[in-house]
Design a protein around this nucleic acid. Sequence first.
DNA 1: CACGATAGATTGGTATGCAAGGTATTCTCT
DNA 2: AGAGAATACCTTGCATACCAATCTATCGTG
Lengths: 128, 128
Amino acid sequence: MDITSWQSQLRKGAAELVVLSLLRQGERYGVELLDKAGGAGGVLSDGTLYPLLTRLEREGKIVARWVMADDARIPRKYYTLSADGEMLVAEMQRTWFEFSAFVTGAIEESAHDRPTAARGRTIPASTG
Amino acid sequence: MDITSWQSQLRKGAAELVVLSLLRQGERYGVELLDKAGGAGGVLSDGTLYPLLTRLEREGKIVARWVMADDARIPRKYYTLSADGEMLVAEMQRTWFEFSAFVTGAIEESAHDRPTAARGRTIPASTG
DNA sequence: CACGATAGATTGGTATGCAAGGTATTCTCT
DNA sequence: AGAGAATACCTTGCATACCAATCTATCGTG
């Protein structure tokens, strides 16, 4: 696996957390979320975002309304957290801190220690 | 989706990083890796670990040898990083720090700010 | 010889990211 | 009017990793 596909694995789950966290700041529409979360080092592309928003709405975690803003040419679909979504994002954030602390911990230990060899005889490969 | 399945999504990719990081500390065998990475708040179960190790070996990122240790009843398969693996894990660790900083950043902004509403007219749902 | 512990491995189901492609609207330029 | 670009939302099909359940094999104990 190359590092690029690995990164897209790493993003799994994170998109949901980031989108919900952004909605915690206030009402947002699709392209706005893409701007905030999709840029350099970002975690989101539009082929990921829209199915995600649809799913979260279906699950009742977020609520949508179409808005014809005065400065906008095209109607936008604005999303807000539901009460359910607020609880979910709080729990996800707690989980994230535990999880990232664990991974960072594993990395940082590896920076100090140096390899040691296992004691014992290596078993020769069978010649058959 | 419940929070448990979400956590397993979050783990995608992280298992590889954690295993490679643990191998950076020295030679390890399967069950040992499970002890270090699989416990409470961990990122690894055995059904994940063994296919992962097989893949990493096939890709030449790690090297395995069977060891008949004096204190062990059953042969163990010990893994070490290859030169390729060392380079990979270094790059993955850099990627991880960028990624986790981004996600944590999104979360922390959401803690300060409070919701604001979009200006404009809500478009009534069509009655059809 | 049944049972549990240790150790490694496989299978099948599931969920997600995302490239590629699509629809629709509005504005600009000619 | 027509072409093209920008904005905005949406869908399809594929690749891939995680993991519960299950399996094989060895060794020690009762």
